[in-house]
């Protein structure tokens, strides 16, 4: 079981709900992924316009809703977005996400740390999206974040665990759960993150933009479970030199 802020989650696959071709396919994918925590984004409502009913659909599932602060360009905007989300849901969960750069969507570490500190003091369960920077992750942990969410690659790129070397260091030193977020493009990459010892992964684009999102959600669910099972079984060490798995007796040679 994944534990975040003293709350238990049966699934280690968190899902983003963006980019699906329809809200109903999104809902079916969440069920198929067996995700128990899913993200949502804040948006201004337009008068007299039918709006996305994802929130209502997700409320029908037994999942924890994790609103993000995407769109915020600094700490102040992110704190405001978190407070709006609290007003909508009445729940303290927030995925803190501050990426002022629209090209690469890379998280601003300084604004993220500032916002995290304030939001933790206000009582939020803060899950910060951040670069795979072990020093930053430690600082985010120190200000009281419920987990850290380092990226594998830029958002939506499906480029996998480009930051693997640093993810390993983050996982090794963290005292809070590590959720690998962003960039995971294939179930094998989710599995690799779990084998590495990540506590969970967050996947959105790779599921939402698959030819069959519902089937891909199921594939990710299995991959995450297998990766975790392997990690818990104790991954064997790698070796430079060959080590025989069979006895090397020369039984074919007549003595």
């Amino acid at each position: 079981m994944l534990t975040l802020a003293n709350q238990k989650f049966s699934s280690r696959l968190l899902m983003g709900t963006g980019k699906f071709s329809s809200p109903s396919i999104m809902k079916r994918s969440v069920k198929s992924a067996k995700s128990t925590m899913v993200t949502l984004a804040m948006k201004r409502l337009s008068a007299h316009v039918e709006h996305d009913n994802s929130l209502a659909l997700l409320r029908e599932l037994n999942v924890t809703l994790l609103p993000n602060t995407s769109g915020a360009k600094n700490a102040q905007e992110a704190i405001f977005a978190a407070e709006l989300a609290y007003e909508v849901l009445g729940s303290p969960w927030v995925k803190l996400e501050i990426h002022p750069d629209q090209q690469h969507l890379l998280p601003d570490p300084i604004e993220t740390l500032r916002a995290a500190e304030v939001l933790v003091k206000k009582g939020f369960n803060v899950l910060p999206y951040c670069h795979a920077d072990p020093v930053l992750c430690r600082r985010l942990e120190e200000v009281g974040c419920a987990a850290v969410m380092p990226l594998g690659a830029p958002i939506g790129t499906n480029q996998g665990l480009q930051t693997a070397l640093f993810l390993r260091i983050i996982i090794e030193q963290a005292n809070v759960p590590v959720i690998v977020d962003a960039g995971i493009g294939k179930p094998s990459e989710a599995m690799a993150a779990m084998e590495m010892g990540a506590d969970a992964v967050l996947v959105n684009t790779a599921i939402a933009t698959a030819a069959n999102p519902v089937a891909m959600a199921s594939a990710f669910s299995k991959a995450v479970e297998i990766g975790r099972n392997a990690y818990e079984a104790g991954m064997p060490n790698t070796q430079q030199d060959a080590q025989p798995s069979s006895p090397l007796t020369q039984f074919l040679v007549q003595e």
Binding site: G18, L40, S54, S70
Partner: peptide, 9 residues
């Protein structure tokens, strides 16, 4: 300003 939550990662 009126806001809601919609699909998003």
């Amino acid at each position: 300003d009126v806001f809601t939550l919609v699909a998003g990662g």
